[in-house]
Design a protein around this nucleic acid. Structure first.
Lengths: 180, 180
DNA sequence: CCCCTATGTTACCGGTCGGTAACATTTTAG
DNA sequence: CTAAAATGTTACCGACCGGTAACATAGGGG
């Protein structure tokens, strides 16, 4: 979906359907034959991002079966890599949240459900890893993750990903020492 | 500035100048006699928010002179209070960042400079408090702060502020124990 | 009182946007 | 090759938006 790049770069509301069609190497009419409205286009774009991320989680789970610490650590490293590649315009989902204030917008529901699933997964991993306060650890991780985008664009931080890795590793090691 | 409420609730781009005038109990014409364009209106609104926050920092500094730990702890507590009061629509500045993709927008510069100042202040406090790795601590705090808004709206977390307080307190106490 | 300034009213401009109709063109399949 | 399906083109609609012009009204200070 080429429209996504435009949405991300210029903001959802800052991109017209005509420009989207052009970016997709087609025209407005054919676009409207596939998508009923700009809103479903937005929603479908969001759905794609979400699907991709969920796929990533499945992969993570497959590669570290029964190893919650490993999953957490690998997750933090993958996230750090993505953060390193990110530049200036922050998280697509985060921005979409800001740009779609209508609480009933379908894209908003898709995003919210995804974020909730993601957070619950982190909680589950922290529990499985035997962290003393799994809810707190998970919330800390999620806050750092969410804050990372903002910090990258607004504050211009560069080692955000590394910090996340650092904290996750620290929690894991601390827990190992504790249970040893 | 009544316009601010509208900006925050419906998004900057989702609010017309006419609606702003109405909310300010006046009309478009008089509004344009005070502000040359919608963009300067936006910028002035942002400037107001930023000024208010800087004021808060000055107050913080005045109330805990020469006590960086106290400043950090009080800062986390005030932030937590604000987060508790916040609902659904996240941070005004964060959203504005998402809604103003033009890197040359004056409001963007105002926000960026503010966020940088804020972060530098936290770094300075961490240094003054004698934290072993002040850059890391400050980045962690900032990431949590920035992430808090996102977590409140997307993930629906409720104890975000308390977590920030918790982590700041933990760092302070750890450091006291270390230097004792 | 009168003048000057601030504010309100209305109507309008040009532009953009989401979305559609009608028709021409190309591609595909049988 | 031909029919049908998909895609492209153009022009348009109504709505809204940011911003302005012209003019009416109010109000306050001398």
């Amino acid at each position: 979906m080429a429209a996504g790049d435009l949405f991300h770069k210029h903001g959802i509301r800052g991109v017209g359907v005509e420009a989207i069609a052009e970016a997709a190497q087609t025209n407005k009419m054919t676009l409207y034959r596939y998508f009923d409205s700009k809103d479903v286009l937005i929603t479908e774009w969001v759905r794609g991002i979400v699907a991709h991320k969920e796929e990533d989680w499945k992969d993570l789970n497959a590669k570290h079966r029964g190893d919650p610490e490993g999953q957490l650590q690998d997750w933090s490293r993958r996230t750090a890599a993505k953060l390193r590649a990110m530049e200036e315009r922050g998280s697509a989902l985060g921005n979409a949240f800001a740009e779609l204030p209508d609480p009933n917008h379908p894209a908003r529901r898709v995003m919210k459900e995804h974020k909730l699933r993601e957070h619950k997964r982190v909680v589950r991993l922290c529990k499985a890893a035997g962290f003393p306060d799994p809810a707190f650890s998970a919330n800390l991780f999620t806050m750092m993750l969410e804050g990372a985008h903002s910090c990258g664009t607004c504050v211009g931080m560069r080692q955000i990903g590394e910090h996340l890795v650092q904290v996750v590793d620290l929690m894991v090691e601390n827990n190992r020492r504790r249970t040893a």
